[in-house]
Design a protein around this nucleic acid. Structure first.
Lengths: 174, 174
DNA sequence: GTCTATACGAAGATAGAC
DNA sequence: GTCTATCTTCGTATAGAC
């Protein structure tokens, strides 16, 4: 169910993701929702954010110790795959929640995930020899530009915008 | 009403922006909605997208003929103002619609606006002496990174991420 | 043009049986 | 644990009076 929620958030946004959609997509039994998530939708979305955030962090572990360009390229690969596998219909669940967040708690959670991504990327850049200030600036730009590129490519239903941004980000990585 | 819709889309997203909110925010009379927008919400949102798109284009007219760095700086200024004036609570209406779009028509409209922004920025860069390929790549990155930076800064409720991205984008502009 | 009242459907949440 | 039924709220949209 959490897995399905991540997917649906990324494809349709927060309000458009109803329990019925999650059940249909996951095949989970109808009566299970409030058993596993007694606090309702907010708890389910919260769990989905956690999963999406952690998964991206784990992907980054595989490039620890590699040069900056490899780090940048790998982070870009994650988003390129999201776009490709969904036929350019999916985006980022964390962004979707940020844009439509009704509760301060969900917004805070989304913020902590963005921060974690930025921090982890900056760490990897520093490990690869970059200066601290350059690392955090590039890491933040990578996160922001990737998120934006996914949105634009999704709207235009073309990978072209994403690839242009990817080129620019790789060029900006020492 | 259209003006209020742009603001509310940028702050709460598509589904969370109800007619009642638009009426309360704009002070428009209740009976006017289906008089002015017989096709309902989709037509209202469509008009809001058009307004947001055109306004950004018009802002860019003021930097026609100036050097690339001035173009980049001015586009960034637009988004910095959106963040500041809203107390870091507002984002981009076009992005909000893209993420939560239920109708293909709205998605197409959002796409055409992103494309128009990219094209106009690229034109300005070319006029300022940049090569065509560099111009379109930088223009696309500027749009994507700005959009993403606004999202991240809004989530974290801090202008810091935006400013880091702004620095990087200015540095990437010849 | 703008008003009120209302139909209609969708979604989150709860209760109680099995 | 999971099911079904139901309650409540809310948002879009329509109808008809003024």
């Amino acid at each position: 169910m959490i897995e399905s929620t991540v997917t649906l958030l990324a494809m349709r946004g927060l309000q458009a993701t109803a329990f019925s959609d999650v059940l249909a997509h996951s095949g989970a039994p109808r009566g299970s929702i409030y058993h596993h998530f007694p606090e309702g939708k907010e708890q389910l979305v919260d769990a989905a954010l956690e999963l999406a955030g952690e998964r991206a962090l784990r992907v980054l572990d595989t490039v620890a110790g590699q040069p900056p360009k490899a780090v940048t390229a790998h982070f870009l690969d994650v988003w390129r795959e999201v776009l490709k596998r969904s036929g350019l219909r999916a985006g980022c669940a964390v962004l979707a929640v940020t844009v439509a967040a009704d509760s301060p708690d969900l917004l805070d959670h989304a913020a902590s995930i963005f921060r974690a991504w930025r921090r982890r990327l900056a760490e990897l850049y520093v490990t690869a020899g970059m200066a601290e200030a350059d690392a955090i600036r590039l890491a933040t730009t990578l996160v922001a530009a990737s998120e934006g590129a996914v949105v634009v490519s999704r709207a235009e239903r073309s990978l072209e915008p994403f690839e242009l941004v990817a080129q620019e980000l790789l060029a900006a990585t020492p």
